[in-house]
Write a protein that binds this DNA or RNA. Structure first.
Length: 283
DNA sequence: TGCCAGGAGTTAG
DNA sequence: CTAACTCATGGC
């Protein structure tokens, strides 16, 4: 049965939130002449679509909470208040009002960003879908078959050669090794949740194929460390152009500068900066 | 054909 | 601790 959430006091731009390139856990589908988005996790399927100030959703199986995975409880007005310290960020926020950080599951998020190195967004999406179909547990609802993202235990057993067949190239060995390490508890989700931001980032970097950038993405989009400020080539370009006084070629120094400038919601600043810099304004 | 993509690991300075 | 080189593959 379809349920609805009133968005009048919690603005959301569903399309931008799910298509801006932060998450690879959602699929866009067409159904009943509408554009909907679908995610499979935790033994359940969630479909969402937006019409004006209403978010509709269908849950299949064990419920997946839109409020949780779309972070609808983040107080955007408060966050914007903290971010709008200059004209560029004001324009970015204005142009993309309702763009939210998502909350994805740890392992799929980790895998997506490990494979993302030197890849383009559509290709990352394809790899995630291939991993789901090939190794994920199937779920069946209403005559439709869905696939969960595979557990670390499962991916750890797949050979490097077989992973390479997904055309992920040299990233295959990182993926396998990281799956093994997560399976073996070398890095544990539960322990990461107890750590503060910098501690958790160092911990994640133990994993193969995980440097500062990938770690920051996982911390922001999965663990909800809103101060994390992932720096990819796009964001680096934007900072260099728009915030030359904060720019530094060293990742650690640059991200520290941005956290100091934007404060505890620096991750939101990064999200708006990324999207705006890429799509809306010549830089 | 050739160039490069939302980076990380390794090695040498 | 930095810089430079390498790492496969697909897409344009």
């Amino acid at each position: 049965m379809t349920e609805a959430i009133d968005l009048t006091d919690r603005p959301l731009d569903l399309k931008k939130t799910l298509e801006c390139g932060q998450t690879f856990s959602w699929r866009k589908i067409r159904e009943d002449e509408k554009t909907k988005y679908l995610t499979v996790r935790d033994r359940g399927v969630l479909k969402v679509w937006q019409e004006g100030d209403i978010l509709y959703y269908d849950n299949y199986g064990k419920g997946v909470e839109p409020r949780e995975v779309l972070r609808l409880d983040d107080d955007l007005e408060e966050i914007y208040g903290g971010l709008e310290k200059d004209g560029f960020m004001e324009r970015s926020v204005l142009a993309n009002h309702g763009l939210r950080i998502v909350r994805d599951d740890f392992f799929p998020c980790l895998v997506a960003y490990i494979t993302s190195a030197q890849m383009q967004i559509p290709r990352i999406r394809r790899v995630q879908r291939d991993l789901e179909r090939k190794y994920g547990r199937p779920l069946r609802f209403g005559g439709e078959e869905y696939y969960e993202f595979p557990e670390p235990e499962k991916l750890a057993e797949v050979s490097e050669d077989e992973l390479k067949n997904l055309s992920i190239g040299y990233r295959a060995k990182y993926l396998k090794k990281t799956a093994e390490m997560v399976r073996d508890g070398v890095v544990s989700e539960g322990e990461l949740e107890e750590m503060d931001y910098l501690e958790a980032r160092e911990e994640l970097r133990k994993l193969s194929g995980v440097g500062n950038k990938v770690a920051d993405c996982v911390l922001l989009f999965s663990f909800g460390f809103l101060e994390a400020f992932p720096i990819d080539t796009w964001v680096r370009k934007v900072v260099k152009k728009k915030y030359p006084q904060l720019y530094d070629k060293k990742y650690n120094k640059l991200s520290e500068n941005m956290r100091e400038y934007f404060g505890r919601y620096a991750g939101y600043a990064q999200e708006y900066m990324f999207y705006f810099g890429r799509n809306c304004e010549d830089i």
